[in-house]
């Protein structure tokens, strides 16, 4: 029953995709290249006077050629998709990792101590709604390095969900379990690692999952601003080249990588989830 349901779902998904791509393909007729290009047209790179949305077949063709050689490096403005994604991932994971290093212990502290929660809550409430990109000018001015600044932006956007979820998870650990630790004479560190951390782990990892999702959203925008390398820069660069095929291809790649990041953290969450 369940199996046949999931098969049906696959069939529906595939047919939706086929219909969508088919309609798209039909609505974007291939360029008419009957005549030889004039010298002017050659100078203009063979571009049409009017930009067109590329057809799916063109995008698939580009995807095959890009993905078959993802790590080529032909100068600052022509790098393989793998290199660009690699840069973005590096920034996201660095900023995310740094945020985790701060957010997890701080969240623990806030979760354990109602006083610290009250003391820090106003700061969190004010800082949390700030768009991470609003920090960019300040970061660029203080850090004076675009690379580090984009990592900082990732750091500042991924810290809040982790911090809040960690505090929430730690504060919500059932009193019975803390009492179990107390009656077994566990020290504060043992209690933290043997009881509170495993008890709060699902909530903490959910926070991390939200964080990495936001970080991946923000990195594209940050790289568009900062430039140089990364998938966000790549999208913007291809837009400036008016290469919409590459733009659509990179949009899809952003989606795929974001999904993979989310899946990784979802399976990590599943590892630490327990049933009460």
């Amino acid at each position: 029953m369940l199996k046949s349901d999931s098969w049906r779902a696959v069939i529906v998904s595939v047919s939706l995709l086929v219909i969508f791509l088919g309609l798209w393909q039909l609505s974007t007729p291939a360029p008419q290249a009957e005549e030889a290009l004039s010298e002017y047209e050659l100078l203009m790179g063979g571009a049409d006077q009017e930009a067109r949305v590329p057809s799916p077949s063109e995008i698939i063709g580009l995807a095959i050629s890009e993905l078959s050689n993802p790590f080529y490096d032909a100068g600052p403005n022509d790098k393989g998709i793998g290199i660009q994604l690699g840069w973005s991932l590096y920034r996201v994971l660095t900023g995310f990792g740094l945020a985790a290093l701060i957010a997890l212990p701080l969240g623990f502290l806030i979760g354990m101590s109602p006083m610290m929660y009250k003391a820090l809550n106003p700061f969190i409430q004010v800082l949390k709604p700030i768009s991470p990109l609003a920090w960019m000018p300040l970061a660029l001015f203080i850090i004076k390095d675009s690379e580090t600044s984009s990592i900082f932006v990732i750091f500042i956007c991924s810290i809040w969900p982790m911090l809040i979820n960690t505090a929430f998870g730690v504060a919500g650990v059932r009193k019975d379990w803390v009492n179990v630790a107390r009656t077994h004479e566990l020290g504060p560190m043992q209690t933290a690692f043997q009881v509170i951390l495993p008890a709060a782990a699902p909530t903490i990892l959910t926070g991390m999952r939200i964080s990495i999702g936001i970080a991946w959203l923000v990195i594209v925008a940050a790289e568009m601003l900062v430039g140089g390398t990364g998938i966000g820069y790549y999208v913007w660069n291809e837009w400036n080249n008016l290469d919409l095929t590459s733009v659509i291809f990179s949009i899809l790649m952003i989606g795929v990588v974001g999904m993979l990041l989310d899946l990784a953290l979802a399976s990590a969450t599943r590892l630490v989830t327990y049933q009460e």
């Binding site: 379990w177 009492n179 009656t183 004479e185 495993p198 049933q275 009460e276």
Partner: peptide, 19 residues
């Protein structure tokens, strides 16, 4: 004074660590 291992407890709701 304070909990100690020389006194074992069984709670009504078991208080087992579910993980």
């Amino acid at each position: 004074r304070g909990p100690a291992l020389e006194r074992g407890i069984v709670f009504q709701n078991y208080s087992l660590l579910p993980w």
